Simulated scan of single mutants.
Amino acid sequence: MRAPHAPKARRTRRGRALRTGLKGWGGVAAMAVVCALAVAFVLLLPLTQSSGEGESTGGPGVAHGVQARAEDDPCLDPQIKKAPEKQTLSPSSADGDTIKKIKAREGEKRKLIVGVDQNSYRWGYRDPNNDEGGNTLEGFDIDLVHRIAQEILGDPNAVQFKAIPTNQRIPAIQSGRVDMVVRTMTINCSRMADVAFSAPYFKTGQQVLAPKSSPITGPDGSLADKKVCTAASSTANSELKARQKAGKLPKTTDITSTVVPNQLDCLVRIQLGEVDAVVTDGALAASQAAQDPTVELKGDAPFTTEYYGVAMKLDADDLVRRVNQILVDYRKDTANGWQASYDKWLSATLGTDSAKSEPPAPEYLRKS
């Protein structure tokens, strides 16, 4: 399920351009409480931290087909479909209209408004055991948000966080509720009709998460007659539909009855025995396995290759360029940049060697 498309004129313009150790959280009961709180509060934010999404004509009896075009669906362009992570603008530190409007905000409103997750362990979450008593968002994605705010507004804490469900990431950007989304969001060609992406900042892929006692071995025949949970509008949901249509997944695998707004909901569904497995990004699945020692990743490696990017409005070219420049500098900063954030938040769940998670050297194939 994808979010509604942007207006045709905007999509057409875009198409032309495209062508050229959390302690104390373990256990079923605690996770169920967290999930319930997430549902209750997810749409009540923003949380502001001062400290820290062809025409056809003809008369009666005449039918005219509408031919899909690459400007309406970037996935029709083979190069874009093959490497969507390369379809972004070259870096720049210049201020354009979008950034000037952000900087023009006054007083308490002079903040970068960012859609994030508050329930993804070690990515964007609240730790009830930290010094803030769970009142502060933290994690790998949150570190990146603070860096972007520092570079644009001169203050890493000039951020207004808004908790956005998985299926509301694109609508939040299109409606202007947020300036950007930094929420483990995979860059793919279908989303490029609706939002603009930065260069990738993380490499991952889809994996199956299931109870350790389960006979499930991966995205294969072992999922026959099993119920699988995914988040709405997620890459996992789209990938499973495609694999089932192509005959790579048993027809008896139920991938439609349990589609939830947030990924964490899927872990709770497993814990409650309502589903047999979850499919999500391996990076997120590893964090969920760390939260609940009764589940594990199935299969030796991810069965897709995907990249996370920062998502922004289609016409926010100057903001895309600035974020890309920030990402270049963030990767170079060995003391307080990408590697330091990985070591702090992800090494415990993904391993001390970050090589498999590092994004490729960026390419900037989008020209305007």
Rank of each mutant, 00 (worst) to 15 (best):
H5F: 12
A6S: 15
P7G: 13
R11E: 15
G15N: 06
G15F: 04
A17V: 03
L18H: 02
R19H: 13
L22R: 09
W25M: 15
V34G: 04
V34M: 07
C35T: 04
A38C: 08
L43F: 11
L45P: 01
P46Y: 07
G52H: 07
G54Q: 13
G59E: 10
A68W: 05
R69L: 09
D72I: 03
A83Q: 08
T88V: 05
P91C: 14
S93M: 11
D97Y: 10
I99W: 01
A104L: 09
E108D: 15
K109T: 07
K111P: 00
L112K: 00
D117N: 13
Q118R: 14
N119C: 10
W123P: 00
G124P: 01
G124H: 00
N130Y: 04
D131M: 06
E138G: 09
G139A: 06
G139D: 02
L153D: 05
G154E: 10
G154C: 09
Q160D: 13
A163I: 13
A163H: 09
I164L: 12
R177I: 12
T184R: 06
R191A: 07
A199F: 00
Y201S: 01
S213N: 02
D220T: 00
T230A: 11
T230W: 01
T230S: 14
A231E: 03
A231T: 03
A232E: 14
S233M: 08
E239F: 13
L240Q: 09
K241M: 12
R243D: 13
I255V: 15
P261L: 06
C266L: 08
V268M: 02
A286Q: 07
A286V: 05
Q288I: 04
A311N: 11
L314I: 13
D315A: 12
A316G: 13
L319I: 07
V323K: 00
R331C: 04
R331T: 04
N336W: 05
N336R: 09
A348L: 03
T349L: 03
T349D: 14
D353H: 08
S354D: 12
A355C: 07
K356R: 15
P360F: 10
L365F: 10
